[in-house]
Design a protein around this nucleic acid. Structure first.
Lengths: 138, 138
DNA sequence: GACTTGACTTAGACATTGTCCAATGTAGGA
DNA sequence: TCCTACATTGGACAATGTCTAAGTCAAGTC
């Protein structure tokens, strides 16, 4: 919970009301919010917070590795506070619903060095696509 | 080459100059173009083509399964004409360079049904991230 | 070849998402 | 308490994509 705030303080973050609110919004939610949704919820707690600050703060949280950026669709980036447990995503192609999933296997190991073209590969993002039960029924 | 045009005609596409140009641009390029880049190249061949038409046509090509939509970064969607050979992507986190890669293994098989939450999973997109040789050297 | 029709294209306004900047405010140390 | 560097603000701006009304044209029909 406020583990997050503690960690941030420990990293030399200057603690402002705005940053606390953004961290709280992410910390309290186990969903995948867009920047705008984060802003909307932050405004509910602190009406004068600006959009630029939310973007800045999200960017900083991402650089610090506290939050993951997920780009499941063409629209907005989404922010996933569940950064400390590696996982991937399952997205409904119709309604956009997102679930966290934990596949077996290790995709990084599946990329032979002959297929790496000299890149230093550090990360892999797997997005499964399909229809959620509701959309499949419709 | 004009296989693509033939297939499209066979599917009842009304063949217009604009659609032919967009199909040619994609067909001739083995790279990953953004919608705007496709538009720029289409304009070179047919100056009066409009942005809306390029977007429409790209959308149709994607629905028909002739072209893949790739969202490797927050910016623009990219269009990959290599839709008939399944592959994944390796992206440089610094300069955005993209390479097609062919990992071993089958990520779809790695998602147990207990992790599918009732979804009908039909597709998987794997994006490896890292640094390309040039950016790693810098 | 001319006609007809409905699908296609166009230009530009609009929407969404994200970035940037100069002016102002403030957290935290001295 | 005061200072100062860092953070925030608000609004302009940029990039990407969507929508619409009006005009255009491909392809079938005669």
């Amino acid at each position: 919970m406020s583990d997050l705030l503690e960690r941030l303080r420990g990293r030399g973050w200057r603690m402002t009301a705005q940053r606390r609110v953004v961290a709280e919004v992410l910390d309290g939610e186990h969903v995948h919010l867009t920047a705008d949704e984060v802003h909307a919820r932050a405004v509910a707690k602190l009406p004068e917070i600006s959009r630029a600050t939310v973007y800045n703060t999200l960017g900083e949280l991402v650089s610090l590795g506290e939050v993951l950026e997920v780009t499941t669709d063409k629209r907005a980036k989404r922010y996933d506070p569940n950064a400390h447990r590696p996982h991937h995503h399952l997205v409904c192609a119709h309604c956009g619903a997102i679930r966290d999933v934990h596949p077996t296997g290790n995709p990084l190991a599946d990329l032979p060095s002959s297929e790496r073209f000299g890149f230093t590969v550090s990360d892999v993002e797997v997005t499964y696509r399909g229809l959620c039960p509701d959309c499949a029924a419709a």
